[in-house]
Design a binder for these strands. Structure first.
Lengths: 250, 250
DNA sequence: CAGTGGTCTAGACCACTCA
DNA sequence: GAGTGGTCTAGACCACTGA
């Protein structure tokens, strides 16, 4: 039953989410009508629709005009924070994230890095290479490039800090609001092979990423290389709700 | 300047989109306030906000509370149809899609296929293997599994049909409304090697996909294997708008 | 045809940003 | 403190579904 106190769209979303995850509404079933929900939550259709739209975006519901809202899945997708941070994602999965910094050096931005970070070519940047582990097993090689405005702050973060994202937010108030990801596949290079402890030529999933502040200022350009059988990226797409796109490799 | 006739949220969205793509508003710039836009389009804030939310989902805009809507990018993301259909995507990129059916056989659903398609184990399914080309070059190997309710209709589609998705919609009225994608990386198997014309052991980007009707009925389970340097998947994520998630490979 | 979601209006108050 | 986006209300009409 609905929480009598749920009036904001967030509360309604979280209440419906709980009820779906708890199988009160199973996949394939139709929810009560928007008007009925509005009445039972003591609010209006507009507010209920905001909550439903949120669950649609998360891939749990789909609207069928003239019929009702159908439960599409009861599997909860991950939050943006979990997507953004390796450590937060790992903890959400009850796994122990670890890793070590292999190298951290200042240098000049390449043309590619400069374009991604929207800074001048040859501006000062900090490049950090980390090897990431899950439950002690190596899963990923991460190369990150930070623009000068944040580089000095990043440099003070200890090499064994599990979550750089958390540290940036906690210690410096720098928050990630957006991230663009590009996913493709590459072969293991000689350098990769040494750091990851695998043979050359094998498959790696590469994720290139630019994270930005709420104002749109790029915080970092990162390139992650995952070993096979370690992670899968899942995208739930529908006509009106996803920003996934497929593009020609450049 | 705004089209005087733009009154629905779709029209406003498309007008703003044009103005952003045409660099009337460049990345980093702030749009006129919601109230100002509402007035100039002859509508209300609510309608304008729907349009803005759509552009946010597409990764073009981001709201900054107390300040305004900031242009984040002027690169247009692809539509759901382009994501869904290899042929439509290729045409959007001005490339020529091609391919041939290598095998098409009826068989019994495996436990995995049955779970994905929400049908009984050992139900009758149609399995089709296609090799896909772009501008004549082999880029992808596609294995698709169709449940019985649609299999006979799929079987009538010619092997050289460029877009199965289009054919299903055009000839049978079967429309894809959702698709869940899981992306990871695998090594080239001996079978793959033969069909794709590459050596064993190299990297392939694997995309597993379940497409559903508006009512949520699975239409197909597909597994695509892309050669390196052919496609990249791009995801634009923010705190409130994307369904991308990262999960442990199973 | 009754009931559903899709859309739009017109207003209100709040939280936040920035000069 | 003026102006911005964030939220919510209370209603209206439309397009569509399904019995």
């Amino acid at each position: 039953m609905p929480s009598a106190s749920a009036r904001s769209h967030r509360e309604i979303l979280s209440d419906l989410l709980t009820r779906i995850v708890d199988d009160e509404f199973v996949p394939g079933a139709t929810l009560p009508s928007e008007s009925a929900l509005a009445q039972s939550y003591g609010t209006t259709r507009g507010t209920v629709r905001r909550a439903l739209a949120g669950l649609q975006t998360r891939g749990l519901l789909t609207p069928v005009q003239g019929s009702g809202w159908v439960v599409r899945s009861s599997r909860q997708h991950q939050s943006f924070d979990e997507l953004r941070s390796f450590a937060q994602w790992a903890r959400g999965k009850r796994m122990v994230p670890g890793g070590r910094v292999h190298a951290a050096d200042f240098g000049e931005a390449s043309a590619y890095e400069a374009r991604r970070l929207r800074i001048g070519v040859r501006s000062r940047v900090l490049r950090v290479t980390r090897v990431r582990t899950l439950d002690g097993r190596i899963v990923m090689l991460e190369r990150t490039c930070y623009p000068e405005w944040i580089a000095d702050r990043v440099a003070t973060i200890p090499g064994d800090e599990a979550s750089v994202v958390e540290a940036l937010s906690r210690d410096f108030g720098v928050i990630t609001a957006h991230a663009d990801h590009a996913m493709d596949v590459v072969a293991v290079s000689s350098t990769d092979a040494e750091l990851l402890g695998v043979r050359r030529g094998g498959p790696l999933l590469r994720v290139r990423r630019v994270s930005c502040t709420p104002g749109g200022a790029p915080i970092e350009y990162g390139e992650d290389r995952y070993l096979p059988d370690t992670v899968t990226f899942v995208v739930s797409a529908s006509r009106s709700s996803t920003a996934l796109s497929r593009s020609v490799a450049d």
